[in-house]
Design a protein around this nucleic acid. Structure first.
Lengths: 275, 275
DNA sequence: GTTCCGCATGAATCGATAG
DNA sequence: ACTATCGATTCATGCGGAA
């Protein structure tokens, strides 16, 4: 088995106890949604979702490094015509458990699930909740910069005069001047809204994430050599992406057939995949 | 004064008591966010936000028609490095008050406020919470259909690159799109993610909403002749849009200078504005 | 007439400084 | 220690003047 990527068969709550405390830099996971994927996971009732998740989160709190990050992909379903509140309850419960609710990213799914209902439109976004153990955490923002929005209009040829002068005065005053900020002004920082299409592989396992989603968070919150954990590995997307990015990857998955599929893929490629 | 549009000077909680019960089809409003706009509204502390808002919501529940809708635009701020939970608390409190939390739309603001911090990116989305009195409410989905967005398939190859990109960015949810240009193409229903830039005028009062935002909800949840209410009228965008769409518009605003500005604009134009 | 480019302007947030 | 104020940071947008 690839030493850089490891998949464990078993229940997340139990298997997490085998991991050492303060050993994981980043958790990226998409747990089974309430009452979703019944056929595979048995389904957790929305009303019991918080109680089910809290013991697992407690273990995550233990294994996560002090400057590490926990990214939770989740979205409430509609029940009796209403949005259920278990995600709101979960956020509050996690805070009481000691987590800091640092941010809520929005994943805008461009090709959302089709359908039509008389009282609502298609749901094309999900929550990506960021939790931390401390206000001071590792964040490598430069790793996820994106092309400036103006690139189509050709307005990036010159900096505005005010910006240039502001930059020059900063450099003269001796404070840390980031030359790349204005020399290579074609890149800017992203926002907290992520636009990504879901991968529609209808073969076998349905990929929950597109690869770019864990990739973005792994770039942003970890460095090569760090440990990335997904306690609900599913088809293993987070695991493979992390390994390809030279992180140590740990996955936990309760379904034997998923674990076997992941192990097969791990044996198949010891080298990073290029897609 | 225009009979179709009426602005009332005063506190929302008190002035709402003057309105008859079951008289309003749609409430679209953007109350002052916690601790924001201190200079004008005095600012409500995040910890007291729910207590401040509940009495107002109680009046809204009274004046709203059984099949009407309440759209609440709101976003929590960052406090001590964390997202504050008052919006989550508010959703739960409104449900206890009798509201149904039907849906959460996402307003993706492409031009979010700039800035850079070590622990977060720019916040470029806001919540648009939909509440109803009943599971059966009026929803005119056909009124907001948008052209099908299969740009990637080469149908627009003749357009210049800049035009194509500009169109793509504006049409991700069909907003700001000139539908007449696409007559004959298939129309589809939108999703629950709305893409709109804030209107940043260089002169005078800057509008909180872009006009398309209330316009979209007014189309979706009301018909001509219905009454549309904004208890925090501000610069009056919702009011003017509703009037231009042949709805009866009622606004409440506590700041005399805002009320005067709205009254002046109402006198100025009895006819729908074409911009 | 167009197109191009400079400029002011935000529902912001953090860290340091001051009372 | 806890709260209030201030400066620094940053980018999409529309307007208006210039080419």
């Amino acid at each position: 088995m690839d030493a850089q990527a490891r998949i464990v068969l078993g229940d997340a709550r139990q298997q997490l106890q085998q991991l050492g405390e303060n050993s994981v830099q980043l958790v990226v996971t998409s747990p089974p949604y309430a009452d979703q994927r019944k056929s595979t996971y048995g389904g957790i009732h929305p009303d019991r979702y918080v109680d089910w998740f809290l013991p697992i989160a407690s273990e995550l709190l233990r294994v996560l490094k002090p400057r590490g990050t926990f990214i939770l992909n989740i979205k409430e379903k509609a029940v009796n015509g209403e949005r259920h509140t278990y995600v709101l309850d979960l956020i509050k419960a996690l805070r009481e458990q000691g987590w800091l609710w640092t941010e809520e990213f929005i994943w805008h799914k461009k090709n959302s699930y089709p359908g039509k209902w008389p009282n609502r439109f298609r749901d094309s976004w999900e929550r990506l909740l960021q939790f931390n153990k401390s206000r001071k955490f590792d964040m490598y923002q430069a790793a996820v910069m994106v092309p400036v929005g103006d690139w189509a209009k050709g307005r990036l040829s010159k900096l505005s005069e005010t910006d240039r002068i502001r930059d020059e005065s900063r450099s003269e005053s001796g404070f840390g001047k980031n030359v790349s900020n204005w020399l290579g002004r074609d890149m800017v920082y992203p926002t907290n809204v992520l636009h990504m299409a879901t991968e529609c592989n209808n073969q076998g396992h349905s990929a929950v994430f597109p690869r770019q989603l864990p990739e973005w968070f792994i770039k942003l919150f970890s460095q090569p050599g760090d440990t990335v954990l997904d306690p609900f590995a599913g088809s293993g997307t987070t695991l493979f992406v992390a390994r390809d990015m030279k992180r140590r990857a740990i996955g936990i998955e309760i379904l034997p057939e998923y674990v076997e599929a992941i192990e097969a893929k791990l044996r198949l490629r010891q080298q990073p995949q290029l897609v």
